[in-house]
Write a protein that binds this DNA or RNA. Structure first.
Length: 427
RNA sequence: GGAGGAAUGGCAGAGCGGUUGAUUGCAGCAGUCUUGAAAACUGCCGUACUGAGAGGUACCGGGGGUUCGAAUCCCUCUUCCUCCGCCA
């Protein structure tokens, strides 16, 4: 969430940012309400502090008198404190309720878009930051969509997943399973080579972690909730990995912290059905390798670009045609300040498939997580910037490989994957 | 799952109703000494809110309670340790 002081000192910028996100009028009014609530909070806190200070003075006095054995005088002081108690209790209650309202309102405010974020409402308004190849590869009319190729070569089985679990839970088999594992290892090795520490995090997180990265409150419906233990299945490794440094004060010399993790990701996404979500286009469980960085604010945008090039490098090595979009204000995630999406061209489906999203969250997540760092000799403490990106999301990469690399003999495995798969052709 | 014990500052570890935001040691920072380093010595060494500042307030795993006053007493939750049971 945003810091109240930031809102106070940059009100016009915040309002302009919200407008770029096409925020409704009530959200703009929430800004006023936040500033008012914060004023109330300060006033009440001061009142409470003063009342407490008075009480502490009496208590110290009573203590001193008791020590000297002056019991009667102590009794006298004690009776003077009586009224104070009720007053503090009342102020305390009001303060608590004000703070709760303030937090509630702050949770409603999304991150402020970076200045480079284009104005726009729908995905059509996204800016093409780096165009795809021209002309786009063509496969002709005989090209099959990946779900048909998968059926032909038994790569994965969605029907079987329905029997075992439900819709959207693919079962990978044989060479398909091996391809999946090959991609995981390839992506992890590439991330390690780029200096990311490999992490194997828990696949379930508690409420605090889900709140830290912004999944809670509000987006409960996106996650599977284990109610008996009040745990959430992770929708992305971003959640457990970023939360590793929650509630910590790092030293500036430790930054940036680079971490990578492979995990399955679970998404309820009560979304639509139809051609666009067929096959692996949208599933409830998929594998993903995530890269996360915790960065110094001065470096975060430079780092965002490095992450962008890392992902671009992966797609180049796999030989997949892709383009990069800079998301417009209306299409950007709630917690992000700047997001680039990677889309792979599917010659068979004749459309672009999103395979990665790389974002800078600036201090939006770190403020929630109280993730800070200490700078230099003056020991100034400030919030870090957090960034993450998919490098990459497997299900859609598998779909892209199946479709783009199909041939009469079978699916040609990209060169870089062959040492992992142990076979050249999926058939 | 059953029975006990414990949770204090970066770490170790005192305190168990009154001037304790917290003894002490280690680590860290600044300085004295030294050609330099080490050693020794001196000082500093948590976070947040609030205030122009002096200062004030809150926090000793989380939440609640008793009391004029709680790190210290009570309730509750969480986590960890030991023993028993079960188990990949």
């Amino acid at each position: 969430m945003l810091q109240v002081n930031f809102i106070r000192n940059n009100k016009e910028r915040v309002l302009a940012g919200l407008k770029k996100r096409n925020a409704k009028e009530d959200l703009l009014q929430a800004i006023e309400s936040i500033l008012q609530l914060d004023d109330d909070r300060k006033r009440l806190k001061t009142e409470l502090d003063e009342a407490n200070a008075e009480r502490n003075r009496f208590s110290a006095e009573i203590g001193a008198l008791m020590k000297q054995g002056k019991k009667e005088e102590a009794e006298q002081s004690r009776s003077q404190v009586a009224g104070l108690k009720e007053r503090t209790a009342a102020i305390e209650e009001e303060l608590k309720s004000t703070e709760e309202q303030l937090t509630e309102q702050l949770y409603l405010i999304p991150n402020i878009p970076h200045e480079s974020v284009p104005v726009g409402i729908t995905p059509e308004d996204n800016e093409i930051y780096r165009p795809g190849p021209d002309p786009l590869p063509e496969l002709g009319d005989t090209a099959l969509p990946h779900w048909e190729i998968a059926a032909k070569y038994k790569v994965f089985d969605l029907e079987l997943g329905v029997k075992l679990t439900g819709a959207g839970f693919p079962v990978y088999r044989g060479k398909g399973a091996k391809l999946e594992r090959a991609l995981i290892n390839f992506f992890l090795d590439e991330a390690a080579a780029a200096g990311y520490e490999e992490i194997i995090p828990p696949l379930m997180v508690n409420e605090d972690s889900a709140r830290g990265t912004g999944q809670l409150p509000d987006k409960e419906a996106q996650m599977y909730h284990v109610t008996l233990d009040n745990l959430y299945l992770i929708p992305t490794a971003e959640v457990p990995v970023t939360n590793i440094y929650r509630d910590q004060i790092l030293d500036a010399s430790e930054l940036p912290i680079k971490m990578t993790a492979y995990t399955p990701c679970f998404r309820r996404e009560a979304g639509s059905y139809g051609a666009h979500v067929r096959g692996l286009n949208r599933v409830h469980q998929f594998d993903k390798i995530e890269i996360v960085q915790i960065a110094h604010p001065d470096q975060s945008y430079e780092i965002l670009m490095q992450m962008l090039e890392h992902v671009a490098g992966l797609l180049n090595k796999l030989g997949l045609p892709f383009r990069i979009l800079r998301l417009c204000g209306g299409d950007m995630g709630f917690t992000s300040a700047l997001t680039f999406d990677f889309e792979v061209w599917s010659a068979a489906q004749k459309r672009w498939l999103e395979v990665s999203s790389v974002s800078n969250f600036e201090t939006y997540q770190s403020n929630r997580m109280k993730m800070r760092f200490r700078e230099g000799k003056d020991k100034d403490i400030q919030l870090v910037h957090t960034l993450n990106g998919s490098a990459l999301a497997l299900a859609r990469i598998v779909a892209s490989i199946l479709e783009n690399n199909q041939s009469p003999e079978g699916v040609v495995i990209p060169e870089v994957l062959r040492k992992y798969t142990g076979f050249d052709l999926l058939n």
